[in-house]
Design a protein around this nucleic acid. Structure first.
Lengths: 189, 189
DNA sequence: GCTCCATAGTCAACTTGTTGAATAGGTGAA
DNA sequence: TTCACCTATTCAACAAGTTGACTATGGAGC
């Protein structure tokens, strides 16, 4: 019952099919709300049944037809009501951190590799977010957009995504140097 | 089946009861792995059945008895195997971000209040993490601890918690100024 | 011609997570 | 002394998330 708010928020960008939403969640909304395609398809059905969204079948040549969803007035009302309630605390689940926490009792080399992998991944995310940010600005300066833009929400969240991934990269690189130094020290014992 | 790894990681600090673990998850491990007490109690039962942990009943005067859990050799093996596998990507669910994303279509004042609340909360977390960091150092310098300390995992993760909450505070304060400027602009229209 | 990838979904089984209440004694403050 | 809060755990019902397979078509590259 909480995923639906994220879906309604995503639909503010315009109508989208389940498949589109899966891509949107993968690329941007997923930074603060994870959802698999299956979760989305199921939730979309329920939301339609509850009258929060409406579907239009778009027939495509050369491609399967798709059902494009739009928020109804009721959907907009529900989203508005959601923004007026106190949000729940953030729920995170990060296996990499569990591995780092246990690095001393675990396989230090494998953990090192996992951290390096995450640094790569975060760098890639960072680059995509930066492109997204520029698209959001659409030629204007940040000042201008924030002062007079119609929709600043997506800009505010992409900015947070950027600072989060920057911190991930910085932290990850620091961890790599720490682990490398310890590995070198163990070898020279 | 993933919570158990976080529990085993937490038990590296020493034996703990379900209640203790609930507090540990609330205070430190919860920064990267959320779990409610109910989840913990249920998982502890399963882990005991699977031979990953063992319980000793500690009788207490003036307090209910408690079952204190310790990782078995098998539990340690399982944790080690876990650190050697590729971690899953981070799963996040943050309602505040969904609210910020929808701020233009929602209740901007309520969202502002929620962001301010989160800044307060993150500042408090930050102070607690800083204390935790100093406890982890135990009088040594960071250099010394990282080079020669026996267990650096918890230090590495608390450092990440600190940088994460610092970013949260910085970002939140920036969002507040942006929202305030826009509110002022709307009033003077 | 074959295989892989992208589009656009659906279904079912299973595992996790969430919520609320129940139990029960002890501690501290007004 | 009453009330709220802390310790310590259990139970049950329900909601949400995960995994893997299955259907279909089109386009690109080898």
């Amino acid at each position: 019952m909480a995923l639906r708010n994220a879906v309604l928020a995503a639909l503010l960008e315009g109508p989208a099919s389940g498949y589109d939403l899966a891509k949107i969640f993968d690329a941007s909304v997923g930074n603060f709300w994870m959802a698999t395609p299956q979760q989305l398809y199921r939730e979309l059905e329920r939301m339609e049944a509850d009258g929060l969204i409406e579907a239009t079948v778009v027939e495509q040549s050369r491609r399967p037809n798709k059902r494009v969803f739009t928020a109804t007035a009721e959907g907009e009302r529900v989203l508005r009501a959601f923004t007026a309630r106190a949000p729940r605390p953030t729920a995170i689940r990060d296996e990499l951190m569990v591995q780092v926490q246990s690095v001393d009792a675990g396989d230090a080399e494998a953990v090192r590799a996992a951290v390096a992998e995450r640094v790569e991944w975060s760098s890639a995310k960072l680059a995509r977010y930066e492109r997204l940010r520029l698209r959001e600005l659409d030629g204007r300066t940040e000042e201008e957009h924030l002062a007079r833009g119609e929709r600043v929400g997506p800009y505010l969240t992409v900015r947070r995504g950027i600072s989060l991934e920057q911190e991930n990269v910085r932290w990850g690189e620091w961890v790599l140097t720490v682990l490398d130094r310890r590995a070198a020290a163990r070898r020279s014992d």
